[in-house]
Write a protein that binds this DNA or RNA. Structure first.
Lengths: 131, 131
DNA sequence: AGAAACAGGACTAAAAAAGTCTTGACAGAA
DNA sequence: TTCTGTCAAGACTTTTTTAGTCCTGTTTCT
């Protein structure tokens, strides 16, 4: 539980690399993959997700590549995690998925919402710059 | 990410059931499984874990079964989750598993420790009674 | 036009999670 | 003591998820 997967791991490494390359020129995936020690094809997939989420901007063609869409201090951990793994969802309902009306009364459900909220808040406070 | 698995889900349901049965007589796994809508064999496995973690106490023989080792308000979510899924570990190191000395300097590592700590604290504040 | 980069769907492989089976140990009652 | 009904525990199988590859297409710049 609460373990990030390899997709997120590579995403973070790649983003770190971009954040550290001071100039905001596009860097091609092959270079990132090499520096970050990941398969280029797999990393490409991951950067597609980051691109779709608006965290990086891709450009094609011979001088193409990826660069950060925003400065590192404006990209937080929650965004990155959600881009690669989807939204944080601890659980739907402890009692019984069907019997739970999802909106009220179910105490367990309320607790999970609370947990999820806290986790999100926490992740939002950490930016790429801190990493 | 941050999704509890079915083992934990069933564990919680089972524990809830025990917590709600006011008398602290042993309840056999078959009954719990039925009430909680889980396979008895699988749930038995899960309760073995809970037993090993000291959350429930098992007794064998014809009037055997499981009962809570402690009152519900003294069993917190962290204990339950750790019993079924092992300790919360977000990640070892974002940078490079090998290159990271795990104890100092690595900024990413520090952040993860922080996240893990906060999550643990949060889980500890929620007891079985609240569910 | 052509080379070099990303886009994206289909596919395969590996790992983890979920679930079953079987045998044994223990407790209590007849 | 012996029989019955419970949990214990390891080996095994199945299912689901994650990781990773392949191939074809599209875009961009020269």
């Amino acid at each position: 539980m609460f373990k990030i997967n390899r997709k997120t791991e590579y995403a973070l490494r790649g983003l770190r690399y971009l954040a550290n390359s001071r100039t905001n020129e596009p860097v091609m995936i092959r270079e990132i993959a090499q520096k970050v020690d990941a398969s280029p094809v797999f990393l490409a997939k991951i950067f597609q997700l980051l691109n779709a989420a608006g965290l990086v901007t891709s450009s094609r063609g011979v001088v193409g590549g990826f660069r950060l869409s925003r400065p590192p201090e404006q990209i937080n951990l929650r965004e990155i995690v959600e881009a690669t793994e989807g939204p944080v969802s601890v659980n739907l309902c402890v009692v019984d998925e069907d019997a739970c009306d999802l909106t009220k009364t179910c105490a367990a459900h309320k607790v999970w919402r609370q947990v999820r909220y806290s986790i999100n808040k926490m992740l939002e406070q950490i930016t790429l710059k801190e990493l």
